[in-house]
């Protein structure tokens, strides 16, 4: 790897003669990597849930977990791009809702691939507008995407006539249920997307510029990097991927509802943050985001298996997110010493 964006400044492997060199250097080095700690947390959660519920570790349930990861997982990729630049995209849920309606309406007239392209194009266009308002006009990302969130949801209701579009061509469900080597199509897509995003952020010029912009935009500009283009791109990616994510929802339900994607932004942001990204930008990895998504979905899945009331699930998930971050902060502070 040509860069090592997750190395915490205070916790670099060259921290010099550290004080408590009690643990083996390999373990220490591994523990300094945030993804490794979060992966450990994911495993702990998995073990606890499998002890609490005999159904958790079944093949069906594991595929369930992957299946439930697809929508939030796809959106979280775009969100990672945005958060790496130091921005935030609150509009992803509403954009998903609007693009689902665009897809549903389009499929009444055009073939499936064209419909998907139109939906993704609509999502990307919304992202382009948000990105330009943020990067070119210098408006706050929080405010712009908050406004876009309201606009997109309102347009979704208007375009759909306040009702779900249910006459979706059944062929669309093929993207979910066609399996490759025994793995469902939507999961294959998710994994391929993560591999692609990882490669882009690590080996492509654009990916490295995104890190540089998020880490120190002024230095990036002064070094002659194309700051504007790569400040806007993440919002375009985020918008387009919101559309792709909702396509999988629509394909599963064969129905497009203007309410789709409600609160999706919260799950996506939580997954990215649990995955170790800094909301100030410049720090985070796509692998971390994948682990974050899995943690979120596993918890939700486990609570369902345990029969916890949906009304209590919100409290449980919120508490676990905050606890996870708190523990992480304490651990990383110790590892830095």
């Amino acid at each position: 790897m040509s860069g090592n964006p997750t190395t915490l400044p205070a916790a670099g492997p060259l921290a010099g003669p550290g004080k408590g060199a009690a643990r083996s250097p390999v373990a220490r080095r591994l523990l300094r990597r945030l993804e490794v700690r979060m992966l450990a947390l994911a495993l702990v959660i998995a073990v606890v849930l499998s002890l609490l519920s005999p159904y958790f570790l079944t093949r069906t349930n594991l595929f369930n977990i992957l299946d439930q990861s697809v929508v939030v997982g796809i959106v979280a990729v775009g969100m990672t791009f945005v958060i790496l630049t130091g921005g935030i995209d609150l509009s992803v849920g509403s954009v998903a809702g609007l693009c689902g309606i665009v897809l549903g309406l389009a499929l009444q007239h055009v073939p499936i691939p064209v419909g998907i392209a139109l939906a993704a194009g609509a999502g990307g266009l919304i992202g382009l507008v948000s990105g330009l308002l943020i990067a070119y006009f210098g408006l706050a990302a929080f405010v712009v995407t908050l406004g876009m969130m309201a606009i997109a949801r309102s347009l979704a209701y208007i375009a759909s006539g306040q009702t779900a579009i249910s006459n979706i061509p059944a062929g669309l469900s093929d993207i979910v249920y066609t399996s490759i080597l025994g793995v469902p199509g939507n999961v294959v897509f998710l994994l391929a997307l993560y591999a692609l995003a990882f490669a882009y952020l690590t080996y492509a010029k654009g990916g490295r510029v995104i890190y540089a912009v998020g880490s120190n935009v002024e230095a990036a500009r002064a070094a002659g990097l194309p700051v504007l283009a790569y400040s806007v791109l993440p919002y375009v990616v985020s918008g387009a991927l919101s559309a792709v994510a909702v396509t999988f929802s629509v394909a599963q339900l064969l129905s497009a509802d203007p309410l789709m994607g409600n609160m999706l932004e919260l799950d996506a942001i939580a997954a990215v943050v649990i995955g170790g990204a800094s909301l100030y930008g410049g720090r985070g990895t796509i692998l971390g985001t994948l682990i974050g998504v899995l943690i979120m979905v596993m918890i939700r899945n486990g609570l369902n298996l345990l029969g916890v009331s949906p009304f209590w699930q919100g409290s449980a998930i919120g508490t676990i997110i905050i606890l996870a971050l708190l523990v992480e902060r304490l651990v990383s502070a110790r590892a830095a010493r």
């Binding site: 040509s2 964006p5 400044p9 540089a212 880490s215 230095a219 002064a222 990097l225 194309p226």
Partner: peptide
């Protein structure tokens, strides 16, 4: 403020202007 990118490696900091020109 104007030169260093703390989240990139030292080598990548050295390569930053190259990245822009590439």
């Amino acid at each position: 403020r104007q030169s260093l990118v703390p989240d990139l490696s030292v080598r990548e900091n050295l390569l930053l202007a190259h990245l822009g020109a590439h």
